[in-house]
Design a binder for these strands. Structure first.
Length: 153
DNA sequence: GCCAACGTTGGC
DNA sequence: GCCAACGTTGGC
């Protein structure tokens, strides 16, 4: 069992959307490091911190879980999709996705600002490393538990 | 293989 | 809207 943080822009797909649909193919990932996490390390049942980015305020808003193994992201083959990749061929797909299922929406939001005040306890968490832009990142269990406990404070 | 140019992310 | 940080591309 591993733990992750996955970013999404709420304007595109937020926690309320995930709660409504229940499970969602996490398409549009076009970063090799993030892809490799999905391909090599994610297992069904892994727990996910659902993070809202590019919004006010950014922060963790829910818990989700991995609901499938990695499989080809169909948007890479769709010329009308903004994530279309002309160099990716169906017999050798470059981009993968996993299905993500809702576990629960948090009572509030664990804001990035709040998270940063706990930097000492969260040492090594990529989210608070300067310049980090990964949209999918591993989270230690210790950090996962610590972050969620901030929601009930 | 180097690196400048460019595009994207994402907090502010 | 700005811009720092970072990844990718492509000329050489």
């Amino acid at each position: 069992m591993q733990y992750w943080l996955m970013k999404s822009e709420p304007e595109a797909f937020g926690i309320d959307d995930l709660q409504r649909v229940g499970s969602e193919p996490w398409d549009g990932i076009r970063n090799y490091q993030a892809r490799n996490f999905m391909r090599d390390d994610m297992q069904i049942g892994d727990q996910v911190l659902f993070y809202h980015s590019n919004c006010k305020p950014p922060g963790i808003v829910g818990v989700a879980e991995i609901a499938s193994k990695a499989y080809p992201d169909p948007t890479q083959f769709d010329p009308d999709d903004s994530h279309y990749d002309a160099d990716s061929k169906p017999d050798a797909p470059r981009w993968l996705l996993v299905d993500v299922r809702i576990v629960r929406k948090l009572d509030g939001i664990i804001s990035l600002e709040q998270i940063k005040t706990h930097a000492d306890q969260l040492d090594g968490l990529p989210l608070i490393r300067k310049g980090n832009r990964l949209s999918i990142m591993p989270v230690r269990k210790r950090h996962f538990d610590y972050l969620l406990q901030l929601d009930t404070e």
